[in-house]
Simulated scan of single mutants.
Amino acid sequence: MSEPAPGHAENEDHAFHAGPIVAVLDGVTVLPGTDTGCVHGPAWYVRRLGSRLTEVAEESPTAPLADSLAEAIRRVRGDHGDRCDLDNPATPAATVCLVRDTGQTLDYLILSDSTLVTERAGQVQIFTDTRFHKVVAELRRDAVTEDYAIGSSEQAARMRQTVTRKHEFTNQPDGYWVAAADPDAAHQAVIGSLPLTGKTRVRRAALLTDGASCAVDDYAFMDWAELLELVTEQGPEELIRRVRLAEDADRDGYAQPRFKRHDDATVALCTFDK
């Protein structure tokens, strides 16, 4: 399930299921007035990347996930045509979380701040890209405070400064990595495989953009085990509904300082019966 932020007609998240692959993508929001060098936006980018990933997976179903993502990024780069400056650090980009069921293993790839939650032998495990959290946490300490309400001119100015600084760390060895215009970023992703057979096999997995994982990461009104159980028993829509309630309860961002009152939210649940 993928839902745009309340009041936003366009969803910059995207999810897809193509054969053995499930993925969630989160387009990087662009501040109004930002020169991206591109005629396209994040919503276009996530849908093109999803389409190209599906295409590549059908052509090379057993290729390493990083190779498949790199090829998809390369093809989307071509989709831009000659109208866009793809060297601009603000060029459209997206986080990626995808899994592939090989029958024996659940292969995963994570790029930036999306989250994979799995349950194996009754134990819940979390997989994410800690490089993004480390870099952005340091930047946000200076920019996001309880002093300014969401939407205020002071908060907007701080947000713009932070985004400008964040571009200095985007797709850099000492920073963090996202899918954008450089295929090499795919090979910097967090990758791994988990068993789908035996006593320690994966039984459930949830893929989350940060607009959904914030239930635990930011608002902390449940833990990861509770999140996975809720999504399994009541569906992704219930998790997103509860996130919306938390967002509305703190509309100005004083309790939970953040840049946006609401965010797009996407959840994909996979269950495995072997």
Rank of each mutant, 00 (worst) to 15 (best):
G198D: 10
T118Y: 00
E247I: 06
E71M: 08
Y108V: 05
C270A: 15
A205D: 02
L194E: 11
Q172A: 13
R120Y: 11
E58W: 08
A43N: 04
P42T: 06
T95M: 06
R244L: 13
I191A: 05
D101Q: 10
C84I: 05
R141M: 10
T232K: 11
C38V: 04
V28N: 01
D147W: 02
L49F: 06
D107F: 01
A156C: 10
F259N: 06
T170V: 12
V136A: 11
D35L: 06
P183A: 11
T34W: 04
E237C: 06
F132C: 15
R74L: 09
I150T: 07
L245V: 14
G192M: 11
A157V: 10
P89V: 00
A5K: 02
F272S: 12
V76I: 05
W44A: 01
W177R: 00
D13T: 09
E138W: 09
L53N: 01
A149D: 12
R258D: 00
M1G: 11
D113Q: 08
S112Y: 02
R165L: 13
A43H: 11
A179W: 09
G27N: 09
K166H: 03
G33P: 03
V190S: 01
P42C: 05
S112F: 10
C38T: 06
G27V: 05
Y148A: 13
S51F: 10
G235A: 13
T115E: 12
V76Y: 08
T271F: 03
M222R: 13
T266V: 11
V24D: 10
Y176P: 00
V124K: 00
D264C: 06
D223G: 15
F16Q: 04
D13P: 02
H187Y: 12
T162W: 08
D82P: 01
A66W: 04
S112G: 10
L65Y: 02
S2K: 07
L111N: 01
G211Y: 02
L207C: 12
T209V: 08
P183R: 09
P64F: 09
L65E: 00
G33D: 07
L239G: 03
P195I: 10
E229M: 13
C97T: 15
G253H: 02
F127M: 04
G50Q: 06
V46C: 07
P61C: 02
R131H: 12
L228M: 12
F127S: 04
N88F: 00
E12V: 07
A70R: 01
S68N: 03
T54K: 12
V202I: 15
C84L: 02
G253W: 03
P173N: 07
A43C: 01
R141K: 12
V46W: 08
A215F: 02
V216S: 08
T162H: 06
C270E: 08
R165E: 11
D67V: 07
V243W: 10
D217R: 14
R131T: 12
Q161M: 14
R158V: 01
S114H: 03
K199P: 05
H17I: 15
E247Q: 14
G253F: 10
V135Q: 06
T200K: 15
G211P: 08
E237H: 14
P32E: 05
W224L: 08
D147G: 07
R203C: 09
L116N: 00
T36A: 02
V124W: 01
V267H: 05
P42S: 08
T95E: 02
T36F: 02
N88A: 04
E226C: 04
P61K: 08
A93R: 05
G198Q: 10
G50D: 05
G33S: 09
V99P: 09
V124G: 04
S51Y: 04
